[in-house]
Amino acid sequence: MLATDADVLDMTVCTVNDQQIREAQAIVEVIAGRPESLVTNDADEHWLRYAVCWQSAYMDNSDVFAQANVEEVKQDNTTVKYGGKTYTLSPLVVLAVSSSVGTSHVRS
């Protein structure tokens, strides 16, 4: 794994477990466009470790997978309009992955 529970605690003051870190790393690997096994550069590994830590903390401290991108709500006749984005990714992860692999692989 790119990060440990101690790394997450040190960077974010959040306590997470190995399963949460694995889930966060899977998301970061998809966003980065490459798995850990293809990370050969120390600087990239550094930024991706940050990304995994921040994503782990983000997922632990919010209802990440329950959030909806609601653009419009009307009271009468109950109209709800959803946007095209999901909020499953920490904004800090986008910055960290951009620093490691360039913006061509980053999807926000």
Rank of each mutant, 00 (worst) to 15 (best):
R107H: 06
T79K: 10
V80F: 07
R49E: 05
E29V: 07
T86S: 10
M59D: 12
R34C: 07
Y58W: 13
D18G: 06
P91K: 04
L38D: 13
Q19R: 08
V73M: 09
E29M: 07
V80I: 15
Q20S: 08
Q67I: 14
V64P: 05
A66F: 06
Y87M: 07
I27H: 12
D76C: 07
E71N: 09
S37Q: 13
V16C: 10
W54Q: 04
N77K: 12
A3Q: 02
E45F: 13
M11Y: 09
V97W: 00
V8I: 01
R22L: 07
V64G: 09
S56I: 06
V94Y: 06
N41D: 10
Q55M: 04
L38T: 14
W54G: 01
H105R: 14
D10C: 08
A96T: 02
V94M: 08
Q20L: 09
Y50G: 01
A96M: 12
V97I: 04
E29G: 03
V73T: 08
T4C: 01
Y58E: 11
Q19C: 03
G84I: 10
V106C: 05
T12E: 05
N17E: 01
T78M: 11
N69R: 11
D60T: 14
Y58A: 02
D18P: 15
V64H: 11
V13C: 15
D60A: 11
L2E: 05
V13K: 06
L92W: 02
S108Y: 10
D42I: 05
T103R: 14
E45I: 03
L48M: 10
T88N: 11
S90A: 11
L89F: 12
T12P: 04
A26M: 07
M11E: 03
A68N: 13
A68Y: 13
G33K: 06
K85T: 03
M11G: 05
M11N: 05
